[in-house]
């Protein structure tokens, strides 16, 4: 198209007749653009609303409350996508270790009678520090850090650089 000044005089009916479909096309275009903007705005607006779940990361988990465990008892809780153990020793101290047996991956449990951690699958035994003391487990259990904040007990992975 060559740019030239449009002529000032032209038959009126002609120009109006040509303009109508153009105006309709423009209206249609505006409509669809509005529609597309709306369909993109909707997810954005939904996105802005924070989700209900608290975003505790996989490095830390809430293991329990202060009065939940009696001395010489333990409980299993979820840490990330694996089970973990929270043990309260006879002297009141807390220990937390991985709950996955190093033999074949069964979930271990704390046994108050022997004050040891035991695996029901093949009778593996660990001491409260996680060291494998008898049975098939070839390695010790990983230890976690325990932090008591107020009434809540938080467990986190051992800090590395």
């Amino acid at each position: 198209m060559v740019t030239r000044a449009l002529p000032t005089e032209r038959p009126l009916e002609e120009s109006t007749a040509k303009r109508i479909p153009r105006r309709a096309a423009l209206r249609f275009l505006m409509g669809t653009i509005a529609g597309s903007v709306a369909s993109l705005l909707y997810p954005i607006l939904r996105y802005l609303v924070p989700p209900p779940e608290s975003s505790l990361n996989a490095n830390e988990a809430l293991a329990g409350t202060v009065n939940e465990l009696k001395p010489n008892s333990g409980k299993t809780f979820r840490f990330g996508n694996r089970p973990a153990l929270l043990v309260r020793l006879t002297n009141g101290e807390y220990r937390s270790l991985s709950g996955v047996c190093t033999h074949l991956g069964c979930t271990v449990q704390y046994r108050p009678e022997s004050t040891q951690i035991w695996c029901a699958c093949h009778n593996g035994c660990y001491d409260v520090n996680g060291r494998n003391v008898s049975g098939p487990p070839p390695r010790a259990l990983d230890n976690y850090e325990v932090q008591v904040r107020g009434q809540e007990i938080y467990v986190s992975r051992k800090r590395v650089a």
């Binding site: 449009l6 040509k18 303009r19 096309a25």
Partner: peptide, 23 residues
């Protein structure tokens, strides 16, 4: 939107060409 755009451009340029011719 893509279709509407294409349609509109066609209409726009058709009427521009006709304006040009009548001019």
């Amino acid at each position: 939107v893509v279709f509407a755009l294409g349609f509109y451009i066609r209409e726009l340029e058709r009427s521009e060409a006709e304006d040009q011719k009548s001019g």
